[in-house]
Design a protein around this nucleic acid. Structure first.
Length: 198
DNA sequence: TAGGTGATCTTG
DNA sequence: AAGATCACCTAT
């Protein structure tokens, strides 16, 4: 299956890219260990008119810099001192949008993911953004700004889920974002067993 | 339902 | 230079 390319990520609508990432295959080769999974839950964040986004109000710092680059790169950051969160940078250079990968369905390398997560069953293994980062072996210092057409991490094309299989809700954990907390920018696959919260 | 955890950002 | 904040997870 072919890798999703720059044209896919550089599109102007981050909500569209977010929805279309559902069902795609995420492959990661970190520490020589190949693991993969199907994307089951995502959230869109926009650098303009979205108080929930780290790059809101054109905020430009060392951390947010990668989001201002062109689409098709990783944005990995540490949250609450513990969780390494994987985001996909979208849109053109200068426009800081990103999609948070919140859950995947484990596919290849499940033994490695179980070991990294110190778990003994697939149920609950990768349903939540912190769990995804841990299962993939991601680290904010090492894996921020990676090209998604590289051989370390990429997404492979797959058929879109039917519209009726996609559930749309508000985003998790963004209550502080006032009116933007109401944006319906979280998307997940309805019947998937790997969802952070139904 | 509370607490752990540490980088990041803002304020003084 | 210090303190508040934070796109979460796990265990009581």
């Amino acid at each position: 299956m072919r890798k999703l390319n720059k044209a896919f990520y550089e599109r102007a609508s981050v909500e569209t890219v977010a929805q279309e990432l559902l069902g795609k295959k995420l492959v990661c080769i970190i520490d020589n260990q190949r693991v993969s999974g199907i994307v089951t839950e995502v959230e869109a964040y926009s650098g303009r008119n979205d108080k929930a986004c780290h790059a809101n109000n054109e905020l430009r710092t060392a951390r947010t810099e990668v989001m201002y680059g062109s689409g098709g790169y990783t944005y990995v950051y540490l949250c609450y001192g513990i969780h390494h969160m994987l985001n996909i940078v979208t849109n053109k250079e200068g426009l800081a949008d990103a999609v948070l990968i919140r859950a995947i369905e484990p596919l290849e390398g499940t033994n490695i993911m179980l070991e990294r997560r110190k778990a003994n069953r697939l149920k609950g293994l990768t349903c939540g953004p912190g769990k995804v980062g841990q299962a993939l072996g991601l680290n904010a210092r090492l894996h921020n700004g990676l090209n998604l057409e590289s051989d370390q991490i990429w997404l492979e094309d797959a058929p879109l889920p039917e519209p009726h299989q996609i559930v749309t809700t508000t985003r998790i954990g963004v209550d502080y974002a006032e009116e933007d907390a109401l944006k319906p920018w979280r998307f997940y696959i309805k019947e998937s067993q790997w969802i952070s919260k139904k």
